[in-house]
């Protein structure tokens, strides 16, 4: 009994630590006070300000657009890469997989300055090209890592059977291999979106001067001390917290149901 109470108390304390900043921001997004801690009455005012603030809305749009483009490109490149590596000889596959691990293990700041050095040499520093490549370097290795296990689980005879039944290699690839690896491809895509949305350092070193994502905008707002003068950011954070928490919970509960069904089969 004592053990149980202690366990629950430990869990509650840690959850409090994890969620209190988030809760604080959500609560204070419903007041127009400039400083957190001074409640000036309930209001949706900040949300109104937020949706009227074309700067912030533009940045929100940029962030989502960048994540989608980077995730789609990374997923295509990474899926093709994983399939290619899977069917290659060890001599080719091993070094490719090793190099593919570099951005995973490396500190982000090192990845970022390495790309900055490269792009400034070829005059592409701080362009949309360098930005998207930067995000792809972060995301693609994770796509490869998510697709690879699905290919290993696949029955190798399926591909051969498709060919025997008259499919062209291209058809066999799109109708047999890719559907079999689909859950891996999807989780690689979702992971890429998350990594891209979460990124600050690589973005800061590769983005065009006038382009901002939520990460770089908020960091710069703190840096320039304008953080507290734009309370609308509070509403934005609160909104993102709530949307992300809901999305992750929903997606995971659904995924969990699916795997249970598959497990039962």
């Amino acid at each position: 009994m004592v053990k149980k109470i202690l366990s629950v108390a430990a869990c509650v304390l840690v959850l409090l630590f994890i969620y209190s900043p988030i809760l604080l921001l959500v609560v204070y997004s419903f007041t127009e006070a400039t400083v957190i801690g001074q409640w000036t009455g309930f209001s949706f005012g900040l949300y109104g300000d937020l949706f009227r603030d074309s700067d912030i809305m533009g940045i929100l749009f940029n962030t989502i657009w960048l994540a989608l483009v980077a995730a789609v490109l990374s997923t295509i490149l990474g899926t093709a890469g994983a399939i290619g590596i899977f069917y290659s000889r060890r001599k080719v596959a091993k070094p490719l997989q090793a190099v593919s691990q570099i951005p995973v293990i490396n500190a982000e700041i090192v990845t970022a300055i390495a790309l900055a050095l490269l792009f400034s040499m070829v005059m592409l520093y701080r362009t949309y090209f360098s930005l998207i490549i930067g995000h792809m370097v972060l995301c693609t290795p994770f796509v490869v890592l998510s697709v690879m296990p699905k290919l290993k689980q696949m029955d190798p005879n399926m591909y051969e059977a498709a060919l025997d039944l008259g499919a062209s290699p291209r058809q066999a690839l799109f109708k047999v291999v890719i559907p079999q690896a689909f859950t891996g491809i999807l989780s690689g895509f979702m992971l890429s979106i998350t990594l891209s949305l979460d990124d600050y350092i690589v973005t800061a070193f590769t983005k065009p001067e006038t382009f901002d994502t939520i990460s770089t905008y908020v960091y710069n707002a703190v840096k320039n001390g304008t953080n507290s003068s734009t309370p609308a950011l509070r509403a934005l954070s609160a909104l993102i917290f709530v949307v992300m928490i809901a999305a992750v919970l929903l997606l995971n509960l659904r995924a969990r149901k699916h795997t249970k069904k598959e497990g039962a089969r």
Partner: peptide, 27 residues
């Protein structure tokens, strides 16, 4: 599901979470 609740912040932009923590520490 319980585990999920503990690791959920992983999916939320860390700059926003750290700024939220800053507000709390400031308060």
């Amino acid at each position: 599901v319980l585990l999920m609740i503990f690791i959920l912040p992983m999916w939320i932009n860390f700059v926003l979470r750290i700024t939220a923590l800053r507000e709390l520490l400031n308060a």
